[in-house]
Amino acid sequence: MFAYCADPKSLEGLQWLSCYLTSGSHMSFYASFLTVLVLLAVTAPVALAFGYAGAMAGRSGAAPLRWLGKGYMAMVRGIPDVVFFLFFVVALDQGLEYVLHFARCSDWAEPVRQGLEFRVCPAAKIPPNNAPQVVHQIYGFALAVLTFAIVFGAFAANVLTGAMKAVPRAQLETAESYGMNNRQINRRILVPQMWIYALPGLSNLWMILIKATPLLFILGVQDIVYWAQQLGSMKTQAYSYPHPDWRLGYFLSLLVFYLCMTKASELVLDRITARLSRGQAIVKQSGASA
């Protein structure tokens, strides 16, 4: 980074620190904060979409659709996150490769499963073996987003189902009496009013999602926890910047990061609550009676 960093072992004090904190591995550490933020920014809307679809399916008049929605909620909510993360990602990855294998390599003689090995033809690999490591990382990240979205979508579906039930029945009946059809009722009456009931639950989910991001490393994405562990561990003279065990310091910086995220989220959520409460007589009434 700086010219004087060429020979780190001769440096001392602030100069050493400035070189140390701008080393390549520290840059990767800083970039991994961005990875976490991107994960949150992408996962939250996708999970909300999954949740909305799940809640709508769960309320549907068509029985198969209703079963699908309720089954999704019950299944994902009932399975521990870590198990789901480990199982689902492997199953999805291998499932896709298995399908591609039959589509592209029908003349492949060897079996795909050989004992414990899972072996598809090179053309069926996702991503292909010769793709740069960046592509592999993006694929891993995409799998992570999808898994997070499915897990948190199920919880969001449950929250939204409750919120939809909380919208006073009289409102919907009034809409019916005006001659609106189901779609119109949903769009004009139900959905705009349900958010205020959904917000406490959804904001909880958002907080849990923030805290669940360290699961990324299980999925092979190098996140902030990985780098904190990697950089904080004791470094011998084999490294340019030898230092004792500094994990406590690195993990403290993660603590500060997560606390800041939580505080910022609270501020934003408070504003959203204030905004959604505007003109909602129902909320004030229930507040007064409680």
Partner: peptide, 26 residues
């Protein structure tokens, strides 16, 4: 040819001096 010839090697990067992540993050 390149599809055949790329070999992906797994390492831990936490076992110096056998394998480690150096200060440029590689």
């Amino acid at each position: 040819a390149s599809a055949q010839d790329t070999i992906r090697l797994a390492t831990e990067g936490a076992y110096p001096p056998f394998n480690l992540i150096n200060d440029s993050g590689k």
